[in-house]
Simulated scan of single mutants.
Amino acid sequence: MPDADIYLSLKQRLTSNGFTHGSKLRAEALRREFDCSASTVREVLFRLSTVGLVDFKEQRGFRVPERSPEKLIELTHMRVLLEGEGTVLSIRNGGVAWEARLTAAHHQLSHIEKRIHGTDDPTDLVEIWFSSEREFHQTLISACGSETLKQMHGRIYAQFRQQLMVSDRRFNFISENIQHHAEILDAALSGDESLTRKKIHDHLARHLTGTTLGE
Rank of each mutant, 00 (worst) to 15 (best):
D5M: 11
D5P: 00
D5K: 14
Y7R: 07
Y7L: 03
T15Y: 03
N17S: 13
K24C: 07
A27E: 08
R32D: 12
F34A: 11
A38S: 07
A38Q: 08
S39R: 07
V44Q: 03
L45V: 01
F56N: 07
F62G: 04
S68Y: 09
I73N: 00
T76C: 00
G84P: 01
T87D: 03
L89H: 06
S90Q: 02
S90A: 05
I91L: 04
R92G: 04
A97T: 10
A104I: 11
L109T: 10
K114A: 10
R115W: 02
D120H: 09
L125Q: 14
V126S: 11
W129S: 07
E133P: 01
E133S: 13
E135Q: 13
G145I: 06
S146M: 02
T148R: 09
M152T: 13
I156N: 04
I156G: 05
Y157S: 02
Y157F: 07
Q162M: 12
M165H: 01
M165F: 04
D168F: 08
R169D: 11
R169E: 15
F171L: 03
N172D: 07
S175T: 06
E176A: 15
H180F: 12
H180M: 12
I184C: 02
D186T: 12
A187I: 10
A187Y: 05
S190G: 15
I200Q: 03
I200A: 12
H203A: 13
L204M: 05
L208W: 01
T211H: 14
L213E: 06
